[in-house]
Each structure stands twice: as C-alpha cells, then as structure tokens.
Design a binder for these strands. Structure first.
Lengths: 335, 335
DNA sequence: CTGTTAGCGCGTTCAA
DNA sequence: TTGAACGCGCTAACAG
C-alpha cells in the first residue's frame, strides 16, 4: 500500500542506503545514480516517512509552541512571527493553547516532549519551578517568548514591560497630566500585569505624584473590562484627566465609555496603552500606544531557538526588544 | 541517557510488552503488576516516545491544519475551535500558514502528509485539482474548513456565504434602502469573495433593483481598503444610502471614512457586513453584521475529522452552519 | 495475565 | 561511490 524506501531501491536497482543518500542530499552519489533514484521516486510517488526518519535520526524538525490563546490578536501575531521563521528553517510547529493555566501548561509541555519536538517555545504566565522541572526532564532547548522568568535561567525574548509602561505614563505626564488612572491586568501576570503596574507607579513617583489606589482598577484585558473600569473612574468625585491602560482592547473600551458619557477624547480625557495592535488605528480617535513588536518577538525567539537547536553558540540568551511610543490622537493636554 | 520502555521493564522485572500494556491502558494486566510498572516509570522518569509509537502503530495522534493566516482574527478564532476539540480528543495540531497561495498550500499539505498526520483540516482559497490530487496521494481523511469545494467531493464545514450576503443586503432593503454599495473581496476567493458578491447581486435582483457596477469596489479584507472603497463611493455624483461590506474590518474602515467626511452612521449612511468578529461591538456605532460562527466552524470540522479518523460513519459529510444577522447600531433608514 | 518475537521505515556505521 | 546490516523505541500478534 504505502511505498517505502525499500520499494524505491528495488525500482531503481540500488540499495536503500543509496536512496536514503539522495533523499538526504548526501553528495556521495554518482549523478547518474541520483537520477535513476529520482526517477524511481517519481514513478512510485514515494513520500519519505518523517516519523520513521525521526525515530532513526532522533530529529523531528518540529518545535512545540505553547501559547496562552491563539484567538487573542496579540498572541496570534506572535504565532505568525514564529511560524514564518520556523518555516524558513524548515521546521513545523505544534501549537497548544494553555490559557496561562499552570496545570494545562505543564501537561502540554509533557505531551510536546513525548512527541520528541526538537525545541520548545513557551509563551505563558508565570514560570514556576514546576515549569523549570518539566523543561529539565528533556534535553531540548527552550526559549521563553513574551514571557519572563524571575530567575532568568532560560533564554527569552520579550520587551521590557516595566519600561514600556513607564514610558506610556511618562508621555502623559509630559503632556501635563497629574491625575492619571490605570486599568491594569491582574498582578499575578508577571509581564502584562505586574510589570506594567510597576512601571506606572515608578513614573508617578519619578514625577513626584502621589499614588492613589482609587485610580487603579484591574481588568481581564478585554474590551468590556475596560468599559467597566472607566465607568468606575467616571463616578469618582474627582475625575482623572488621563488613563493608562495595560492593553489596547481595554483602552478602546475606556474610550468608548468616555464617549458614551458625552465626553471627548482627548479633549476631556486622554487615553494611552501598551500593545499597539492593529486595532489601535482602527478606532476614532486613533489610539496613542506604546508599540510592542509582537511579530518580531515571535520571529526572534524562533530564530534564537533554531540556533540553540543547532547547538550554535548564542551571544545573548536574553533578548529585550525595543518598544516605542506611537503618538496618535488619544492623548492631549489636561483640561 | 534516555530511558526506554526496556529500562522500565527491567526495573519492574517484567517484559516490555507488559509495560506497553500499562502505558496503553490495556486492561489485561494484574493490578499488582500494573502498580509495579507505574512505580518503575515514576522512579525512572520514563516518558513514552511518541515517534516510536507512531512508527509502530501507524498513528500519530496529530492532525495537520493548513490555515490562510493565523494573525487574522477570523481564522485565529477558527483555529481555537479546532484546537479545543482536538485537545478534547487527545490530538495535537501542526499549524501551517499558507496565505491562500496555491503553491504554498500544496507544499504544506505534502510535508504534513510526510509527517504522517492522522488527518488534515484544510482552510484555504480555491480547492483545485492539484489539491485534490495531493489529498488523494495519502489515505488520511481531509475536511475542508470554512472553505468550499466546487465539486464538493470532500467533507466540509462552512456557512452558506451566498445566503449570508443575501441576508445582509436584504436587511438593508427591508429598511428601505435602494442604492446599496458593496465593498467586496476578490472574486477569485470562492467563499469570502465570489459567493458574497453573488448574494449581493441576488438580493438586489430579488428586490428589483438594478445592479450598478459603480457601486462595487473590491478590497483586500483590511481596514484600509474599506476606507479607500468608501472614499470612492463618497465621491460618486449620487451617493449610496447604504453599504454592504464583505468583512467587518472593511466595514469599520468604511464607517470611519464616513465619519471623517462629517457624515453620520447610520443617519446619513448605513453599514452592514458579514463576519461579526469581536471587533463588531468594539466600534461606535456598533456594527450590524451577519454572524459567522467561526469558533464553531473550527470545532465542528475537527469533530467531523475525529469521526472520519475513527472510521465512524458520518451522516452528513457536508455541514452548513447557520448564520444570523446581529442587529446593532450601524443600520438605519435611508435619509 | 504475561513474555517472545517481528516488524514499522529509515539513518548510519562499516566494509567493500 | 555503493551496499549490508544493525538499531531507533515501540506495538502487535502469537504463544504460553
């Protein structure tokens, strides 16, 4: 039924070793023989069995990718960066959603390792000892992607979330704002949550502005939670003049909430966020945001992983990609 | 270095067949023996090699997914549906972006088959004879996902794009609109492009409205192309009173273009689209759209594939999921 | 209930 | 430049 390397060998009148050589581009084959083999392959419609190949060579040219949620635009963008580079280096990716849930993450890491992936790209929540333990039980390289490791014992590619948040808030401060609210992610989330909140606090502190916990609400990164948080702010006795959102989506929710209340952005309130997803320029007013190079984070981490898999020495095992504030229309002077 | 089933057998004082049995949950093992084996597995940190398993059993419990572009919100949503169900049935997915490019599609189909996937989920552009040919060279089941096959010789899961477009335009017509423009996808694209355009024409025809080619522009599904198309319409000597967009993103571009020109939606012009992505409720006015159940399309097609892979008989090899018009705020009466 | 023995399809020595 | 033979780690009969 299925045609194997052995069939090709017989058809071409050579040994299977020779067929293997031509399939693997081994130069030690007489051109004439090579031609014969190719013809036999063509005639029989031979398709090399990658599983058998993987067993014999102990390489699968497949990498595992654990991702929080592929339906989230931000991560989908990273995934595309990963896949493009993977493809370029002839790797395929096995994609697993783990929703930043530790148990699910550990589970998929293990099944990925069972599948003998040549490397692992991990995008998740906090990296715990259990994660480290799971990584260690195999000897394939791992790189963290848009994810930080407290001990940074594992190669990683990310932006500096704290600094990104700092810059965002700084932008507001430079514009004259003093009463700045924040729509944060959960503090359990090291990068999108905790780090960005720290950046917010540091920016206030640096400017000599007192931190006011009434000006901070935590959302779940989604549009609706941005609306909710903003509603809360709008009922405060003394309104903020600007709000910093940990993500674009919540920022857009905030903008619409402000507009629905009859106020204007940025005339009455300014809004800034971190992400700069494609949606940022798809709102009116267009959203001013700190750009996080998601595609590049994916691409660079995959590139790094290919080097690790080839056991090349890498100069930098922890790369921090630059962020940049993209000024659009949602930030103005305080009223 | 790596611990194999053989090591476990020795450690537990049984044969490898027995170890294989307990790992595979074969009931024919004495509970006591089973316990011994589990302990040995634990002690040695044994992790079954799925590649070897795949070679011996001719099953890899992985399915190949070819997708146009994972960074596109619509497809990302489908992908999530696929992965959730795959996960539920203990399959993993290898994800390949093919950008609806025929060559790329054929190429990834082949490498997926080399990897011995147990099934294939194909999401792409037109299904040509070459595609059919590639599918046929293996004997794994294939299901088309959000993709139509002219001859429908392959199981598929999708909505009826023509009818969805028809219903959208019908909605406009029922509201009293007669001069209805369309921002179309490329006609080369069977479902999102051609079928939706056909639906538009049929709706006009049914209502006795003459088709006017000046009222149709084709875009590339992106926001900017919606803006461009709308700009064109706004310069027409006689403006349309409503526009039907083949996708949400272009519709949002159109809305913003209208607003930027000082006009209002839906007071001056109505806008409707097909998709109903999460973005639809993230614009002001919120977008009225025909809902395409993307997550379900993914989930159902994966479920169908599992049945096919288990050689279960399926009642319906061509499933058409229902669509529904979601009325929000972007459609009103003609001025 | 358990063990023995063939392969699965291929890469890779080692000789020739 | 080529071929023979072994083994990758496991499943699946087949015996017992």
């Amino acid at each position: 039924m299925t045609v194997t390397i052995y069939d090709v060998a017989r058809e071409a009148g050579v040994s299977m070793a020779t067929v293997s050589r031509v399939v693997n581009n081994n130069p030690n084959v007489k051109p004439q023989t090579r031609k014969k083999v190719f013809e036999a392959i063509e005639r029989l419609g031979y398709r090399p069995n990658a599983v058998a190949r993987g067993l014999a060579s102990k390489k699968t040219t497949t990498v595992g990718v654990v991702i929080p949620d592929i339906s989230n635009a931000i991560f989908a963008e990273v995934a595309r960066g990963i896949e493009d580079i993977a493809n370029m280096y002839h790797y395929n990716i096995i994609l697993c959603n783990a929703d930043k849930k530790k148990d699910k993450e550990i589970r998929v890491i293990n099944t990925l390792l069972e599948k003998q992936v040549d490397g692992l790209l991990f995008m998740g929540g906090a990296v715990t000892d259990e994660h480290l333990q799971a990584f260690k039980t195999s000897n394939v390289p791992v790189v963290l992607c848009a994810t930080t490791d407290e001990n940074d014992s594992i190669p990683s590619v990310d932006i500096d979330h704290e600094a990104a948040a700092f810059d965002a808030v700084q932008t507001l401060i430079n514009q004259g704002h003093k009463r700045i609210a924040m729509i944060s992610g959960t503090l359990q989330d090291p990068s999108n949550g905790y780090a960005r909140f720290q950046g917010y606090k540091r920016a206030l502190e640096t400017a000599g502005i007192d931190y006011d916990e009434n000006l901070v609400r935590t959302g779940n990164y989604r549009y609706e939670s941005g609306v909710e948080a903003m509603k809360y702010f709008l009922e405060l006795p003394e309104l903020p003049t600007a709000v910093f959102s940990a993500t674009d989506e919540m920022a857009i929710g905030a903008i619409h909430c402000i507009q629905d209340s009859g106020r204007k952005v940025p005339d009455d309130l300014s809004v800034i966020s971190v992400d700069n997803s494609r949606m940022a320029s798809m709102v009116r007013p267009q959203l001013t945001a700190v750009a996080q190079p998601m595609y590049d984070i994916g691409a660079v981490s995959m590139r790094l992983l290919t080097k690790l898999m080839k056991k090349e020495t890498v100069e930098q095992a922890r790369v921090v990609l630059p962020h940049e504030v993209i000024k659009r229309q949602s930030v103005g002077n305080p009223k």
